Amino acid sequence: TETREFDNEEEARKEAERLRRKGQDVQIRKKGNRWELRRT
């Protein structure tokens, strides 16, 4: 599992969408005042 953190939700969602188009399974969750993007 690979995780990346983003400062805002929009960036996290854009990156998640990009990875999903490549066929990756991605989850986003709020972590304090940041957003965590998890690739499984």
Rank of each mutant, 00 (worst) to 15 (best):
22 K>H: 11
24 Q>E: 13
14 K>Q: 12
12 A>Y: 01
33 N>C: 11
35 W>M: 02
33 N>L: 04
1 T>E: 12
21 R>F: 06
3 T>F: 12
33 N>M: 04
2 E>R: 11
36 E>Q: 04
20 R>K: 08
37 L>I: 13
17 E>I: 08
16 A>H: 04
39 R>A: 15
26 V>F: 08
28 I>F: 02
12 A>F: 01
1 T>L: 12
37 L>D: 13
30 K>T: 04
4 R>W: 15
35 W>I: 03
24 Q>D: 10
26 V>G: 02
23 G>N: 03
17 E>M: 08
1 T>S: 11
37 L>F: 00
13 R>A: 08
6 F>K: 01
14 K>R: 11
19 L>N: 03
18 R>P: 00
11 E>Y: 03
30 K>Y: 03
34 R>Q: 09
37 L>C: 09
4 R>N: 07
5 E>V: 14
11 E>S: 07
34 R>H: 14
37 L>E: 12
39 R>D: 15
36 E>D: 00
9 E>A: 05
14 K>A: 14
17 E>D: 12
28 I>R: 01
31 K>Y: 02
33 N>E: 10
32 G>K: 04
3 T>K: 09
26 V>Q: 01
38 R>H: 15
9 E>S: 03
9 E>P: 05
26 V>R: 00
37 L>H: 03
24 Q>F: 15
1 T>R: 11
12 A>R: 00
24 Q>L: 14
19 L>G: 02
36 E>F: 05
6 F>I: 01
39 R>M: 15
31 K>V: 14
4 R>F: 14
5 E>A: 07
35 W>Y: 03
4 R>D: 07
11 E>F: 03
4 R>A: 10
7 D>E: 10
8 N>F: 06
8 N>H: 05
2 E>P: 09
32 G>N: 07
18 R>D: 07
2 E>S: 11
38 R>A: 14
24 Q>R: 05
28 I>E: 00
24 Q>H: 14
18 R>L: 10
25 D>P: 08
2 E>M: 13
31 K>A: 09
30 K>Q: 07
4 R>V: 13
13 R>Q: 12
13 R>P: 00
33 N>I: 02
5 E>Q: 09
32 G>Q: 02
8 N>I: 05
10 E>Y: 10
21 R>L: 12
33 N>V: 02
25 D>F: 12
11 E>K: 04
26 V>N: 02
6 F>E: 00
34 R>K: 10
12 A>P: 00
22 K>E: 14
6 F>A: 01
40 T>E: 09
6 F>R: 01
39 R>N: 15
32 G>D: 08
22 K>Q: 14
27 Q>S: 11
29 R>Y: 10
34 R>D: 13
40 T>A: 10
39 R>Y: 15
30 K>E: 03
21 R>M: 12
7 D>N: 06
6 F>W: 04
22 K>A: 14
35 W>N: 05
1 T>A: 13
1 T>H: 12
27 Q>A: 09
36 E>Y: 07
14 K>V: 10
33 N>K: 04
31 K>P: 01
17 E>P: 01
5 E>N: 07
25 D>L: 13
15 E>I: 05
20 R>I: 08
22 K>F: 12
14 K>D: 09
19 L>I: 05
37 L>S: 06
5 E>D: 09
24 Q>N: 09
25 D>M: 13
34 R>Y: 10
